[in-house]
């Protein structure tokens, strides 16, 4: 190796401000409690474990990211929390009440946009309010406020197919928040967006979270995204799915893009990379050597 690795601090080190923040978060009541959750499903080779021994406490107003390789069951986990799937064992409590199906106390934003194509942007946001039994006038004005908040007041009468991916996802966020859920579940919500839009959306999300009284459980497989957004990061491993480590993010708030190069950010990202990808076996990654280049034409 011909480069000098950066000297990074230990990712456990927290500045007094950050430590104080985590202390305050821990003092707040638990919104979502997942205990000993387990999911298995039958395959041809018998019972397969998607994940087991998953326990989590998410405190009020906390931003928690779950990160892990594909196949670790993170999407199944969030679907179970949303009530769209059933656990094989364990318990989920929202504000102390067990979860038995989908409900308005948990809002969800999916990776696919899942906006209703037959409803205008505003009508999409009104959907949950109508389901909750609000009268149309009331729902209308509330929906408009939520759209203003995500910066989309101008397109309230457009149909979803007329919007860009980023705008659609902001509508989806407004739609989920309009129900004033206790916790917002986000399943790789920016996974389908291009890198630039994703970056913007992350900053939008932080701004929205600041203004709205909501706790966020966010699933991603993007290390930068987790480091940029989360308070705590839950790292999951695969085969079988399980929690490997829960990390308190040492990057101070408010977050800016400039922090992407701060020592705290880099050390955290380095640790996540280690946990998720493990030590890289250089030999295993090598392709067989077949030369098709001319002499003198090689690249290093």
């Amino acid at each position: 190796m011909s480069y000098t690795p950066l000297k990074l601090p230990d990712y456990h080190e927290q500045s007094p401000d950050v430590a104080d923040r985590f202390r305050r978060i821990r003092e707040r009541p638990v919104v979502l409690k997942v205990s000993d959750l387990r999911k298995t499903f039958g395959t041809e080779e018998g019972l397969q474990v998607a994940f087991e021994n998953v326990s989590l406490d998410i405190h009020r107003r906390e931003f928690l990211c779950i990160i892990g390789p594909s196949g670790c069951g993170k999407s199944t986990l969030i679907r179970i929390v949303a009530g769209l799937d059933h656990a094989s064992g364990g318990e989920i409590l929202v504000d102390g009440h067990p979860v038995s199906g989908p409900g308005q106390d948990r809002g969800m934003v999916f990776q696919g946009y899942t906006l209703f194509p037959w409803r205008t942007v505003k009508e999409n946001v009104m959907f949950g309010l109508e389901m909750g039994g609000k009268d149309v006038d009331h729902a209308d004005s509330e929906a408009r406020q939520w759209l203003e908040m995500v910066g989309l007041g101008k397109v309230e009468n457009s149909y979803p197919h007329e919007l860009s991916g980023g705008m659609k996802q902001r509508v989806a966020i407004a739609r989920a928040l309009a129900n004033e859920p206790r916790i917002l579940l986000m399943d790789e919500p920016f996974g389908a967006l291009d890198a630039l839009t994703r970056c913007k959306m992350q900053s939008y999300l932080l701004q929205i979270w600041k203004k709205v009284n909501v706790t966020i459980l966010f699933i991603t497989h993007d290390l930068d995204e987790a480091c940029y957004l989360a308070d705590r990061i839950v790292v999951m491993g695969a085969n079988p799915g399980r929690i490997v480590e829960v990390i308190e993010n040492p990057v101070p708030r408010p977050r800016t893009v400039a922090q992407l190069l701060s020592p705290e950010f880099l050390t955290l990202k380095h640790r996540l990379d280690e946990l998720i990808h493990g030590p890289v076996d250089a030999e295993e990654e090598k392709l067989p050597v077949i030369k098709l280049t001319e002499a003198g034409d090689e690249v290093e």
């Binding site: 009530g83 769209l84 899942t114 959907f127 949950g128 389901m131 129900n179």
Partner: peptide, 15 residues
């Protein structure tokens, strides 16, 4: 019909 639309509606309180 895309099942994701139905799931989205369920999480929004549709029954």
């Amino acid at each position: 019909v895309d099942p994701a639309l139905i799931e989205a509606a369920q999480t929004l309180g549709g029954k």
